[in-house]
Design a protein around this nucleic acid. Structure first.
Length: 221
DNA sequence: ACCCAGGGTCATA
DNA sequence: TATGACCATGGG
């Protein structure tokens, strides 16, 4: 009985337990975009430090980033790890962003076009593109990350080996009849990440256990 | 001394 | 198309 309700039940339980998450942490669309790249395989606390370095140096701006020498930019990004890779990725993102007319012009594209454009940028993969679509451009796109895969795999809803696109299509289809998808997808992804962080406080969901990689759970709530 | 983190690219077979 | 190597700091 794979009704859409199953996917809403998980949301409802988490929402009642944890409350609204009001994501993404970041004040402007551009800050959200940079955060999406910087948080790749990296904890958010480290990203906050790097963003602070950019702010202190008045470099939270695509033109400033393009004009900053690689070594200098990388030094600001040190806390996020992979700082050489991410300095290059930020520059390639900013080059594309400026050439595309920034937020105002890009926001005129429909969601499939904008997604293709984002994926054409070196360093922007499917999850980063979807973070940007949902949280910077307010498009109804369901973000699939490692936590989402683990949670729903351990709930038995999926087998965990599906491709990114396959899972995204599944979630969007299961939730297609819900009102205000942007708000729902925004909160849903935020709640999954919050749940992963605070699983050991009062777990509202029987995932078997936590969402750590090496925990396949024998401690139902 | 591990394990983990809100991934993505590139080279190989 | 499917693995594997690589990127690298910081917190638990």
């Amino acid at each position: 009985m794979s009704t859409p309700k199953k996917y809403m039940q998980i949301f409802n339980v988490m929402y009642k337990h944890y409350g609204p998450q009001h994501w993404w942490p970041g004040e402007t669309p551009f800050e959200i975009m940079l955060g999406a790249v910087l948080t790749q395989n990296t904890s958010w606390t480290n990203v906050e430090k790097a963003i602070q370095h950019l702010k202190i140096n008045e470099a939270l701006d695509p033109k400033v980033i393009m004009d900053t020498h690689h070594k200098r930019l990388a030094s600001w990004l040190r806390p996020v790890g992979y700082f050489n890779v991410k300095a290059t990725r930020l520059k390639s993102y900013c080059q594309w962003y400026l050439a595309s007319g920034q937020f105002e012009q890009l926001d005129r594209l429909d969601t499939p076009e904008l997604r293709r454009a984002l994926l054409s940028v070196k360093g922007v993969g499917p999850e980063t593109a979807d973070d940007i679509l949902l949280y910077a451009f307010s498009r109804p796109v369901f973000v699939i990350d490692a936590y989402t895969r683990r949670l729903f795999s351990r709930l038995g809803y999926i087998n965990g080996e599906e491709t990114y696109e396959s899972l995204r299509a599944t979630f969007e289809k299961k939730l297609q009849r819900q009102a205000d998808q942007v708000q729902l997808f925004n909160e849903y992804h935020g709640l999954i990440v919050w749940h992963a962080k605070y699983f050991c406080k009062k777990r509202p969901i029987c995932t078997g256990c936590c969402l750590r990689r090496q925990c396949h759970g024998a401690n139902p709530v």
